[in-house]
Design a protein around this nucleic acid. Structure first.
Length: 418
RNA sequence: GUGGGUGUAGCCCAGAGGCCUAAGGCGUCAGGUUGUGGCCCUGAAGAUCGAGGGUUCGAAUCCCUCCACCCACCCCA
């Protein structure tokens, strides 16, 4: 038997309420902050991601779904959303729109990972990108939007962590300091960290191994090695966040796995959780647009993991608004009544009244049971008698009362009830 | 890539070498007298016990191999 590919999932009808709930929240929130929807292709030239995400990152190194298309081009199923949006920004000359350009998307994301709770090979993100302004006030506004989004969902006990990882001006000096520091402890480092030492020294900071942990506490902190510009930016960010009354924590060992980040990075996570907890992450990426060959343009953004949000909504037992149920069930008996039933179902739907109906003939009892389990509140019963008299028996399932209603008046009557 | 765990009907699961021609619950379908739901009752369909091999007179139960999925590390949303 076929199965969904490892690490992918079907989203069944019973879960769709969560998805539409989130979508509604996003669509009402985004305009409040001036964000407009953008959709980009599900795959891009592989080079786009290699260039922006970084050759030495795990994503590029071992997690991309890259394939040759029929003309030999290397294509990649998007492993993150920012690069595509920046590509679109450049391609469509959005630099000549009023800045910053604010865009959001909902997109499936593909990474070849070992699946586990909250981690999939295909997952979905809502992403927000604001391109064309470098002020820390924009960072703060963006973080405020993320925070408000989760608040509007009813998620509790979240923490907001921020950090600044500097820019190409100050980072090299900081990295040198880090390297110097860790070089002194190289023999205690875990195997992974020994490897990361040369490749991506920043990563040593968030190693969770008990042997490496103690080292990070006294490691040089990036926020203490920022150039003046970055330091001011970080100060302003903190000020604005406080003004917006966002309860942030500074996590000086938070680094991110994509190379394009500069200055601000942040994450939002549920309090109690273990491994796959981060439900939103992002930061500033002032160098990315320039890296793609366009005029250097500052930008900031973040993405949220939809599956992880839903996981938390379920964990916290957040109630979903109940979906509109089909209200009228058409029960019919006999071939003559069947024709009337078909006609009626058409008329009801024409009038935007939802209805369910039996297709293969079944007993009235069976039809009533079906109406009940489908959550219908009314059953319109059509049998020989009703056909003869030109009416239907309309039964209210909740009060268990029923009365004959002339066929001609039924639609009107049902509209009243609604 | 590294570790650990689990695999019995659509779902939850009993079952620990012969009494398993595999039990039960949910769900599905059909009934419970003449055209009526939710509760209850009856019945039916639905499982080559993840796959292959082995041990044994005998395997869902023991052994081996493979596969699938889950969890954790790593990394990230």
């Amino acid at each position: 038997m076929f199965q969904a590919p490892y690490g992918t999932h079907d989203i069944l009808p019973e879960d769709q309420t969560y998805w539409s709930f989130l979508k509604e929240k996003i669509e009402s929130l985004a305009p409040l902050y001036g964000y407009e929807r953008i959709d980009t292709p599900i795959f891009e030239e592989a080079g786009l991601f290699v260039r922006t995400v970084g050759v030495d990152t795990d994503i590029v190194e071992k997690e991309m779904y890259t394939f040759a298309d029929r003309s030999g081009g290397q294509m990649t199923l998007r492993p993150e959303g920012t690069a595509s949006v920046c590509r679109a920004y450049i391609e469509h000359g959005m630099a000549s729109r009023s800045q910053p350009v604010k865009l959001f998307y909902q997109a499936p994301i593909f990474r070849y990972e070992r699946p586990q709770a909250g981690r999939y090979r295909q997952h979905h993100q809502f992403g927000f990108e604001a391109i064309g302004d470098g002020d820390a006030m924009l960072d703060a506004e963006l973080i405020d939007m993320a925070w408000r989004f989760f608040d509007s969902l009813g998620l509790k006990n979240l923490t907001l962590q921020i950090n600044s990882i500097g820019c190409p001006k100050c980072r090299p000096a900081y990295l040198a300091k880090l390297r110097e520091y860790y070089a002194g402890h190289k023999e205690v480092l875990c195997g992974d960290c020994k490897g990361r030492f040369d490749k991506n020294i920043l990563r040593l900071l968030d190693c969770k191994k008990p042997t490496c942990q103690p080292l990070t506490t006294s490691a040089p902190r990036s926020v203490e090695h920022l150039c003046q510009e970055c330091a001011e930016h970080f100060e302003q960010l903190k000020t604005h966040l406080s003004t917006l009354q966002l309860p942030f924590e500074i996590n000086s060992s938070m680094v991110r796995g994509l190379d394009y980040y500069t200055k601000t990075v942040f994450e939002i996570q549920p309090e109690d959780e273990r491994g796959q907890s981060t439900i939103a992450g992002g930061g500033r990426y002032d160098g990315l647009i320039g890296e793609l060959g366009a005029k250097p343009t500052p930008a900031v953004g973040f993405a949220t993991g939809i599956e992880r949000i839903i996981l938390n909504l379920k964990k916290q037992k957040v109630a979903m608004p109940n979906a509109q149920k089909s209200t009228v069930f058409i029960a019919w008996l006999g071939e003559v009544a069947r024709q009337t039933a078909v006609k009626l179902s058409g008329e009801l739907r024409q009038m935007n009244i939802a209805s369910l109906i039996t297709y293969t003939p079944r007993s009235l009892k069976a039809q009533m049971r079906q109406a009940d389990s489908a959550g219908c509140n009314y059953v319109a019963i059509i049998g020989e008698e009703e056909v003869a008299q030109g009416n239907v028996t309309l039964r209210d399932l909740r009060t268990a009362k029923q009365e004959p209603v002339a066929l001609a008046k039924l639609v009107e009557k049902l509209q009243e009830i609604h």
